[in-house]
């Protein structure tokens, strides 16, 4: 991927030694964010480690829109400085913990946005956000009929009538 912008090693006034990162979204918006805020992202942390190894700091290009990126930054800002068990590398798979109240409000968005956020969180390796999104999606389809699940999540029925009610047909495993 091309490196399009160099970033100096500036710090945020009044915020101690927190350095800045330049994130570039798929719609080519440049967003400057404090490194501390994004440290919850394993992906970003690994990028920053790479910067330190080469003594050069570059913009980080991300494959999702500024709209989604800003939502993720909002999440990371809210939990800045908090330890979340789900983000521990040794923690159980995402989604095992109850959804926090703030997360419920934060994720009170439409399906499109929710799916975009979980994909971004997955890309950025933010397990806590992946877990909260996954729970929100699971809540949308839990207890629903097959047809309702398809409608809610925009999934096309690609079964033949014979296949539809037999999990043993045309499936791997």
């Amino acid at each position: 991927m091309p490196t399009i912008v160099s970033v100096d090693d500036s710090t945020v006034p009044g915020e101690g030694s927190s350095r800045l990162l330049l994130l570039v979204s798929s719609d080519n918006k440049h967003i400057v964010v404090e490194e501390d805020i994004m440290s919850r992202s394993r992906f970003i942390s690994k990028q920053v480690e790479g910067f330190e190894a080469t003594s050069q700091r570059h913009a980080i290009l991300l494959p999702f829109s500024s709209f989604v990126l800003n939502k993720v930054i909002e999440y990371c800002s809210h939990y800045r400085g908090y330890y979340l068990l789900e983000d521990d590398p040794d923690a159980a798979p995402p989604g095992r913990s109850p959804v926090r109240e703030w997360d419920q409000e934060f994720l009170d968005v439409d399906r499109n946005m929710l799916l975009r956020i979980i994909k971004a969180a997955h890309y950025l390796e933010i397990k806590s956000l992946v877990g909260s999104c996954a729970r929100a999606i699971a809540d949308m389809i839990r207890g629903k009929t097959t047809e309702e699940m398809r409608e809610i999540l925009g999934v096309e029925n690609d079964f033949t009538p014979e296949e539809e009610h037999s999990p043993s047909s045309k499936c791997t495993g």
């Binding site: 989604g95 799916l115 975009r116 994909k119 997955h122 996954a134 999934v155 096309e156």
Partner: peptide, 14 residues
């Protein structure tokens, strides 16, 4: 954006 675009890893979590 539909659930069809989610990778298998995410679907498995859900």
């Amino acid at each position: 954006c539909t659930a069809m675009s989610l990778p298998n890893e995410l679907l498995l979590i859900i």
